[in-house]
Design a protein around this nucleic acid. Structure first.
Length: 127
DNA sequence: GGTGAGCGA
């Protein structure tokens, strides 16, 4: 029924290139950060959408500057979903944010980063 | 330097 389709439109958990993107965890990968962004300003910005338990920004040990991405931990996955929907694509300190759910990386193994269009590619073939 | 995936329990 079309009521289902309308639910897909109004629910951010069901929109990712027109495909399902449920909150898989309460951690967000945040890319596209400005070079001058720091953890406290990032936490302050994301705290408006939920309880931020931890913020970690990756720094280059050689230059001491940020690598332009980081991770934000929320108390609840629902809050992470809300913050992602609200902040993704929004300008922060002059640069648009690129947010997605964090893929858990275990010590000693490289994180498997699927191309952010692999699922969408399947959806396009279906379309 | 701008399409990017860490750290510590």
């Amino acid at each position: 029924m079309f009521i289902i389709r309308r639910s897909l439109l109004i629910n951010p958990a069901f929109s990712w290139r027109g495909f399902c993107s449920p909150p898989i965890n309460n951690k967000l990968f945040v890319g596209g950060l400005s070079w001058s962004v720091d953890e406290k300003s990032l936490k302050d910005a994301f705290s408006s959408y939920g309880e931020v338990t931890e913020v970690r920004i990756m720094y280059d040990k050689d230059t001491g500057r940020t690598r332009g991405f980081g991770f934000v931990h929320f108390s609840k996955a629902d809050e992470a979903q809300c913050a992602k929907d609200a902040m993704d694509g929004k300008a922060f300190l002059g640069r648009p944010l690129r947010i997605s759910f964090a893929l858990d990386k275990v010590r000693g193994a490289s994180v498997v980063v699927p191309r952010f269009s692999s699922v969408g590619d399947a959806a396009k073939r279906d379309n």
